[in-house]
Computed example of a mutant assay.
Amino acid sequence: MTTYDLTGRIALVTGGAQGLGQGMAQALAAAGAKVMIGDVKAEGEQTAADLGEGHGYVQLDVTDEASWTTAVQHTVQQLGGLDILVNNAGIEITSLLTEVEAADARRMLEVNVLGTVLGLKHGLRAMRPDGPAGKGGAIINMASVAATIAFPGIAVYSATKSAVDRLTRVAAMEAGKLGYGVRVNCVYPGLVPTEMGAGLANDVAQIGLFDSPEAAVGAVVELTPSGRLGEVSDMADAVVFLASDAARFITGAGLPVDGGMGM
C-alpha cells in the first residue's frame, strides 16, 4: 500500500523562499513534514512563517561549505532531524555561446553544480547511520528538461543540469553501496512561469532567438505533447512522491515532469 504521508519527517529545501522551492516546501508541509527553508534571501523567513508553527528558516548560500554546515546543524537541532533534502537552488543566465561571459558561466557552475555537490555531501553525512540525524532518508535534486533537449540560449545552464543528473546517479550508487539508507533521485522540471521561467522567455527574445517572449513560450508549448507549460504544483507533487514511502524502491532515477517535452 502506497502513502504520501510525511508526518514526522524533517525536510530542508534550498532556494525555498520563492518560486518552485516555495511550492515544494508548501507541498511537503501539507503532506505532514516539518520544513526548513534554506535560502540566501531573507524572504525565506516569511515563507517559513506562512507554513505555520513547527517550520523554520535558515540563511543558506549553497556555494559555501560553512553555510551548509550551519544549515544542516540548525535543521537537526531546531526541527529534530533531517530526513528529506531538496537541492532546488539554482540560477539561469541566458546567453548565446558566442557571447558567454566567463563570470556568468562560473556563477552557474557554482550554484547549480557545486551547490548540489555540497548539498549531497552534507545531506548524506547527516542522514547516514553515524550522522547527527542518522535515520537515512531521501535526497531530491533539481535537474531540468534543459538537460535533455537542445534549447538555444541556455547552453551553460543545460550543461550544469546534465551534471546534476550524473551527480544524482553516482550519489545513489555510493549511498546504496555504503549502506547509508538514503535514496537519491532527481526531477527534470519543464518550463514553469515563475520569475525564472518568465525571465528566460524575455531573455531569449532579447538576444534575438524569438520575436517576442510570447513566441518563446509558444515554442515551448509546441514542443510539449501535453500542450501547456508546467505548474509549480506539478513539480511540488513529484518531490513529495519521491520523498515518500511510495518511492521506497526508487533511487538513482531522473523523473521527467515536463509534459513530454524531453522525451
Rank of each mutant, 00 (worst) to 15 (best):
T3A: 14
T3N: 10
Y4V: 09
Y4F: 15
Y4E: 05
D5H: 07
T7N: 13
T7V: 03
G8V: 02
Q18P: 00
L20S: 08
Q26I: 03
L28F: 03
L28Y: 01
A29T: 01
I37Q: 07
K41Y: 03
K41H: 09
E43R: 13
E45S: 13
Q46T: 09
T47M: 04
A48Q: 07
D50V: 03
G52V: 02
E53F: 00
E53A: 08
G56H: 00
G56R: 00
A66S: 13
S67R: 08
T70E: 15
T70L: 15
H74L: 12
H74I: 02
T75N: 11
L85V: 13
N87W: 07
N88W: 02
A89S: 12
I91A: 14
S95T: 03
L97I: 14
V100N: 06
E101H: 09
E101S: 08
A102F: 05
D104C: 04
D104N: 13
D104R: 03
R106W: 02
R106N: 09
R107A: 13
V111S: 06
V111R: 05
N112D: 15
L114M: 15
L114T: 14
T116Q: 10
G123V: 04
A126L: 04
M127V: 14
R128T: 05
R128C: 11
P129W: 04
P129N: 10
P132C: 06
G134A: 14
G136E: 01
I139R: 04
N141P: 07
S144D: 01
A147K: 03
A147R: 01
A150E: 05
P152H: 04
G153Y: 01
A155G: 15
Y157C: 06
S158T: 03
S158R: 02
T160S: 14
T160Y: 10
K161L: 11
T168P: 09
T168H: 09
K177I: 06
G179T: 01
G179N: 05
G181W: 06
V182H: 10
V184Q: 12
N185C: 15
P189H: 08
V192C: 15
V192Y: 12
T194D: 12
M196N: 05
G199R: 11
V204S: 11
F210L: 04
E214M: 07
A215H: 02
A216N: 03
G218Y: 00
V220A: 04
S226V: 07
R228T: 04
V232I: 15
M235H: 07
A238T: 01
A238M: 07
V240P: 09
F241W: 08
A243R: 02
A247I: 00
T251Q: 09
A253Q: 14
G254V: 12
P256F: 04
P256Q: 06
M263F: 12
